[in-house]
Amino acid sequence: MTGPIRVLVVDDQHLVRSGFRLILSVEDDLEVVGEAEDGAAALVQARALRPDVVLMDVQMPGIDGIEATRSLVAEDLGPVIMLTTFDRDDYLFEALGAGATGFLLKNADPDALVDAVRAAASGHALLAPEVTLRVIERMTGSVRVDPPGRPAPPGWERLTEREREVLLLVAEGLSNGEIAEHLVLGEATVKTHVSNCLAKLHLRDRVRAVVWVHQHGLLPAGEERTGQDPPTD
């Protein structure tokens, strides 16, 4: 990417938009190119500006953040980082279904916001650690975990043993740096393994990888499965 990362900020509160603009504008590689106060305005702005990243509030009048995200993703108008809060988990999972690339809590540190924007612009998903735990808790509480003897899920056989280890650690909510420390690998090597997993499983991003693992019962709640193959016979 040449030039700064172009960001569209969407929130119905002017003070919130101003705060995000202030945080992002001090970074040489980031530029806020537009603001919108609701989903309808966000679609208009995104179509005109073609931002590299969209910061999207969830609850707004008119077209809310979930519906706007669904439209933005369908039109390929840029990755969306959804701003969420603990008290409305339903928003988090609706946003996941709508295709959001990243999730941040509104009380996140400024550095986390900057890192999320850079990650999204580079084609990577980013989950706040607290949000990752929410995803895991919901998935392990709602998906069916097959009994011993279940077949391996489609695509699992294409992964190497190391890729499987990395994938399961991703699903536990570990960052690339934490995975590298846990497996005694370089962080660049971990990134390569994560990318290979996504490509082989045809998953768009890290968020979908977390969901995929839990949907297939590869990391049951309360059971350590890291580095182990699922039963295949």
Rank of each mutant, 00 (worst) to 15 (best):
G3N: 00
P4K: 06
I5S: 02
D11N: 05
Q13N: 13
V16D: 04
S18D: 09
G19L: 00
F20G: 11
F20K: 15
F20T: 07
R21N: 06
R21Q: 14
R21Y: 09
I23Q: 07
L24R: 03
V26T: 14
D28W: 04
D28G: 07
D38C: 07
D38N: 08
A40H: 14
A41I: 06
L43G: 00
A46R: 06
A46W: 10
R50S: 05
V54G: 02
D57L: 02
M60K: 03
P61V: 08
E67S: 13
T69R: 00
R70G: 05
S71K: 12
V73K: 14
L77W: 02
L83C: 09
T85N: 12
T85M: 06
D87C: 06
D87G: 12
R88C: 09
D90W: 03
E94M: 13
L96H: 00
A98F: 00
T101P: 12
L104K: 04
A108R: 14
D109M: 14
P110R: 02
L113E: 02
L113P: 10
A116I: 08
A119G: 14
L127R: 04
L127C: 05
A128N: 11
A128T: 03
E130A: 11
T132M: 15
L133E: 11
R134V: 09
E137K: 11
R138G: 10
R138D: 13
T140V: 15
S142C: 15
V143Y: 11
R144E: 13
P148D: 07
P148I: 06
G149D: 12
P151N: 12
W156V: 13
W156R: 09
E157C: 12
R158V: 12
L159C: 01
E161C: 07
E161Q: 13
E165I: 06
V166D: 04
L168T: 01
A171T: 00
E178F: 11
I179F: 03
A180C: 07
E181N: 15
H182L: 12
V184R: 10
E187G: 05
V190K: 02
V190T: 04
T192M: 15
T192R: 15
H193T: 04
L203I: 00
D205A: 10
D205Q: 03
D205H: 10
G217H: 02
G217L: 02
L218K: 03
A221H: 06
A221N: 14
E223I: 13
E224W: 10
E224H: 13
R225C: 10
T226W: 02
Q228C: 05
D229Y: 13
P231H: 11
P231Y: 04
